[in-house]
Design a protein around this nucleic acid. Sequence first.
DNA 1: GCCGTTTTCGGCCCGACTGTTTTCAGTCG
Length: 576
Amino acid sequence: MDNEKIAKVLGQLADLLEFTGANAFRLRAYRNGARKIKELPESISSLVDQKSDLVKLDGIGKSVAEKCIELCETGKLKQMDELLEEIPSTVLDLLNVPKMGPKKAAAVFHELGVENLEQLKAACEAGEVSQLSGFGKKTEQAILDGIAIAVAANERILWSAADKIVTKLRSHMQNCTAVGGLEFAGSYRRGKETVGDLDMLATSTDATAVMDHFAEFEDITSTIVRGDTKMSVRLDDEFQVDLRVVPEESFGAALQYFTGSKEHNVQVRSKAKQLGLKINEWGVYKIDGETEQWVAGTTEADVYKTLSLPCFEPELRESRQEFDWAELDQLPDLITVEDMRGDLHMHTTASDGRASIREMADAARQRGLEYIAITDHSKRVTMANGLDGQRLLAQWKEIDAINAAAEDDFVILKGVECDILENGDMDIEDDVLQHADWVIASVHYGQNQPRQQITDRIVGAIANPNITMVAHPTGRLLNKREAYELDLNAVFQAAVEHGKLLELNANPIRLDLKDTYLAAAKRNGIPIVINTDSHRPAGFADMRFGIKQARRAGLTKSDVANTKKVNQLLKLIGKA
DNA sequence: GCCGTTTTCGGCCCGACTGTTTTCAGTCG
């Protein structure tokens, strides 16, 4: 059983227990444990096999550890099965309905026998829900409206898609003279790979004018709430945008507060409490008996400074290691787009790209890059017109000629994205590969193979002396396809043993490796390569998505191989 | 249920908004 699954079961267990009115802190402990397990690069299942003491892991105590062991050894939880005899699992779907929390869901379940969304809809339409204590006509209607949303809008959108909405909203809001500062907080600002909603923050002395202006945004289809300082709307019947309007002196506090993450803020505010301070979205207050005195809030840096903390980069605010790093004065100096010198994964018209070698090279030059690698698909990828040995050798000859004729120092490396075949063989013969500067190995077929088999394929490729890097190592596509079953620790070990590199694919739907895996690769000392996998010149712009992801992993310039000058890179991979 | 440079027991972040209420519970972020 993989970590993802274990985390999911623990989360469901917490949800079910919430129906039974369990202690809120116990639920938090389960959910916190689930989060930690989900982010863990080591497989819990392997740790259990090795009889490692799970309690040593942060956030995992005796109880969660026992549940992990039970899950790994039997594939299920006795406690969970017992709960499911009382509460059907479909009841958990009720929690996806906006304005339906555990209390309301428990009420309709216990008092009306509602077990799923369909029955909830029927009960609302029959007017039964509004008869319950604590419910009224408005709540009933809100639930009815919410059922459609629960079905349609529970998918998070890609960061890149959120960024497009932000650009449009920003330009709309800047036409409002009442708006002073404007910033987008939340998971968008932290650069998470997907975004659930947008948190827009504005400073103004006239909140009404700001909200009125916001209400005119063309994509708004409904208003969820509107108060004195807060307004929430839905765009295109799905995506939610929240607006908060605060005075200028609260901008930093509000930005800190709404950027989150929730777990990061819990730590920040706990720390404040220890120091006799209170932090909310309006500022930092010194508590003196009964009185509260405002001491900071204009900028985020001021807020953190009152706690003797550095102003963490938003990408690091996940309550992972940032507080430990701060304590040791070891916060990483995060990588930026400007640090990048090369891009080592791209396609041309020879396979499934849309531009020639020269066009790709010129586009890279214009972006200020110093080198690229041309890495078209190998022959197994027939759909993409992949190249065989003969065509590759011809292409590399062409690249030699282009390099020789170049009037500047820009370098095109001769490469290939070589398929790792289902049986573990490489798609291109070694006597061809050995003439390349840069060989990417990647899996495109047989992604559903069992864990051991697919791990062996990738580990085998890493052991091949002609291979330089493994591309998109887990194969996941955000919101579309799960990562393949892979023993990542084995892959890391092989990469370390053979001195190989791993890719962070910057394509916004891939972002593979994900942040916690990148951080684990870094701990192992494995160099990361951030590539756009461009199929056209405009594709180079995707580099910023990869950089966001790298920053979330705490990567610095020195952790990423293609920040090096080309001769240093070639030295690193043993080609110079 | 988890955790500990004041603690192995006693804490565990904080406020806006709504609807159903006569002072507050539930939901959300």
